[in-house]
Design a protein around this nucleic acid. Structure first.
Length: 711
DNA sequence: CGGGAAAAGCTTTTT
DNA sequence: GCTTTTCCCG
């Protein structure tokens, strides 16, 4: 193992004695390298068997990457090592111990969309008003309770409405149990509960995992922390890696506090800081450091680099969002001339809605781009339809799957028929499938409905018989055609239907590929495939060979790096977002988000804002983001193009403001970075005053007045 | 059942 | 304002 490729702090972390370690790893400080080297070190130097190691990450992508890196460094198989996400590892645990956990062997996993539908059904079944008890809120409530480790009976009701939400939670939980399904949070919760109550299992796993490693620890929630403590027990060594300054998922339950609690809960924990950055220029790092220093309660870190100073950060004041987009596109064209390839350039923004204007500008100039995010493969409606058939075949009790496909494609089973089935099921505590069978026996329907229902029942039964012996991908293929899904989407007009057909056909390939890569022995291929689809909803990664500008939100940019970064929409109300501005905690998270954005850039960072922006249909005038002001002036170069779009002629000629205060046209002024120049124009007043200055060597620049002094 | 009109969102996202 | 979902009627 080559340790001399690591810096002293990294080496210290990799070679740390077997105990608790807290690695505070700044952006671009090589934390993944440290983590993988550490695991290799444990195996090679501490003689820990891969069998005794467990490593947790937040995404499947990170887990896969970690395993393959370790494999390439280690001369032995890593199969015995547990590497995965909290959810993936919990799933693996519950598959082995479904009996102890009181689960059906073929239990399936609900994604958040399935969960939402199921909760809505439950609310209807309880005869509650959807307006008074919105499914979204119930979902938020339920997931929140689960993250705190509370089952329905453990929740303290706050008020009458809270009491109702508990009842919804209770009913939802019962419905899940009946259907043999569990949601994401259940995977963690059931694992924790089982480890808490079953001393034998707890002892077994605590004895096994002598070394536990957690990546991105600042993103853990309470339940995940509990999960870790249960497996760690008294004797196992825990290494966590994280960066409190990059915690940007507080809004979905991540507790930055966990990283603060670690030293207390894991006695003797040693803190090691990785502060040397290998990514960015010192200008970018200084800006990031200055920005994040405005936050309180940090563990504290100061990134530094041995690298170049680099160019100043460019701040562009656009007239409106179109002007901003054109600025970006123009700069991209320049960069391209300067031998940057498009894939080295990223445009980051706070919210997805911002991408449209930028996309239009890129399209207009024929610049290829790729937008990250959006619906992923296994989340597409047509794919979920197909998977619901597979789910129902595996498990006729799967009510959410039943609901989804009973009338997809349309086969004459309407809402009234379904209501009858649902009510019967509810009254007799049966699953929808059982209720349907009993009602058919009792001849409860009109002839037409009965025919429709019978053909559905027969369809499913035939599918089960016919696919039993088939290989997984043949099963999928059979289901696609026999269900009529293919025909259904074929009829859908336009490009949409075509894409959906292609997606469905792709599912056969996906299934084939899945079986080739090997199915865990303890599961049936179909169950394994379904679990895979639910847990790993499929990347929409840009292919590396595509030379495209990368567009994404700041959140999805985390963990990535780009030679050139444009950070668009740096305006108050948008970034920081208006919904976060009232709450100091949320505001600090926005600042961390900005920190994440700034530290993505390797060589060149552009930040831009628009003076006028159409938001929710209205023209809104926002001030430049406070984050821009938190970056030291000497690191910044502010510019504004005087394009036609950016300022109507009329305003210039009729409105010539008399210089208020310190500056007037023709005056000689001084700037800390650019030196001496002459004032050409003045706009606005007070804090917003912008002064156009001509500098002898640098040309004309528009600057904020407070950055200038009289000569 | 399907299409068009009305209404409701509208920050960030992984599992 | 624009887009997505829901609702209502032929």
């Amino acid at each position: 193992m080559i340790l001399n490729s690591l810096n002293p702090a990294q080496q210290e972390a990799v070679q740390a004695p077997l105990g608790h370690q807290l690695i505070l790893a700044g952006a671009g400080s090589g934390k993944t390298r440290v983590l993988t080297h550490r695991i290799v070190w444990l195996v090679e130097k501490e003689n820990i068997s891969p069998f005794n190691i467990l490593a947790v990450t937040f995404t499947n992508k990170a887990a896969n990457e970690m395993r393959s890196r370790i494999e390439s460094m280690l001369s032995m198989p890593t199969k015995a090592m547990w590497i995965g996400t909290f959810h993936g590892l919990s799933h693996r645990f519950l598959r082995s111990h479904w009996q102890e956990a009181g689960l059906p062997q073929s239990f399936q996993i609900l994604d958040s969309d399935d969960q939402f539908r199921m909760i809505r059904r439950v609310i209807h079944a309880l005869n509650l008003d959807e307006d008074r008890f919105p499914p979204k809120e119930a979902q938020w409530f339920i997931n929140g309770q689960k993250e705190e480790g509370r089952e329905p009976h453990q929740v303290e009701p706050r008020d009458i409405a809270g009491q109702m939400f508990i009842r919804i939670y209770q009913a939802y939980q019962e419905a899940c149990q009946r259907a043999g399904v569990m949601d994401f949070a259940d995977l963690l919760l059931k694992t924790c509960k089982l480890l808490q109550t079953n001393a034998t299992l707890r002892a077994h796993y605590q004895a096994r995992f002598r070394c536990l490693l957690v990546d991105e620890f600042q993103d853990t929630n309470n339940l995940q922390y509990e999960w870790l403590k249960l497996l760690a027990g008294e004797n196992n060594a825990v290494m966590i890696v994280g960066d409190d300054d990059q915690s940007i998922y507080g809004w979905r339950g991540a507790r930055i506090e966990n990283i603060h609690c670690f030293s207390k809960d894991f006695p003797g924990a040693k803190i090691i800081r990785l502060e040397q950055n290998y990514r960015s220029t010192s200008v970018i790092l200084e800006a990031a450091n200055a920005l994040i220093s405005k936050n309180s309660g940090r563990l504290g870190k100061n990134l530094w680099t041995e690298g170049k100073t680099g160019d100043p950060i460019t701040i562009y004041a656009g007239f409106n969002e179109t002007d901003e987009a054109f600025f970006i596109v123009n700069r991209i064209r320049d960069l391209r001339q300067n031998s940057y390839s498009l894939r080295q350039i990223a445009i980051l923004y706070r919210s997805n809605a911002q991408s449209r204007v930028i996309e239009e500008a890129l399209m207009q100039f024929g610049i290829p781009y790729r937008v990250y995010g959006g619906l992923r493969y296994f989340e597409r409606a047509e794919i979920k339809d197909a998977l619901a058939y597979l789910r129902l075949l595996t498990n006729l009790s799967d009510d959410p799957a039943f609901e989804r496909i009973v009338n997809t494609p349309p086969r004459g089973i309407g809402d009234r028929t379904l209501t009858t089935i649902r009510e019967y099921a509810k009254a007799s505590g049966l699953t929808l499938w059982q209720a349907l069978e009993q009602l058919l026996e009792q001849k409860q329907f009109t002839t037409r409905t009965e025919t429709a229902l019978l053909s559905f029942v027969n369809l499913i039964k035939t599918m089960i018989e016919r696919t039993l012996a088939l290989e997984l991908h043949k099963q999928v293929e059979y289901v696609l055609y026999a269900s009529g899904l293919i025909d259904h989407y074929r009829k859908e007009k336009g490009e949409k239907g075509l894409t959906r057909m292609e997606n469905l056909e792709e599912l056969v390939n996906a299934a084939h590929q899945f079986t080739q890569e090997g199915v865990p022995d303890e599961m049936s291929p179909i169950a394994a495939f379904l679990a895979y689809a639910a847990l790993e909803s499929g990347d929409v990664q840009a292919e590396v060979y595509d030379d495209c500008v990368q567009l994404m939100t700041l959140h999805s940019a985390k963990g990535l790096e780009f030679p050139v970064v444009f950070l668009a929409g740096c305006e108050e109300e948008l970034f920081p977002h208006y919904l976060s501005m009232g709450d100091p905690k949320a505001l600090e998270e926005e600042r961390r988000l900005c920190y994440v954005g700034v530290t993505r850039a390797m060589h060149k960072l552009y930040m831009s804002y628009a003076e006028v922006r159409r938001m929710h249909g209205k023209e809104a005038y926002h001030r430049p983001s406070r984050f821009l002001h938190e970056i030291p002036v000497e690191l910044v170069e502010e510019i504004r193009f005087r394009t036609k779009v950016s300022r109507p002629q009329a305003m210039m000629s009729t409105y010539q403001p008399e210089p208020e205060g310190r500056f007037h046209v023709g005056q000689e002024v001084r700037h800390r970075v650019f030196g001496d120049g002459i004032v050409l124009d003045i706009e606005g007043d007070g804090d917003d005053m912008k002064v156009t200055v001509r500098f002898p060597k640098l040309g004309t620049k528009v600057l904020i007045a407070s950055y200038l002094t009289e000569k």
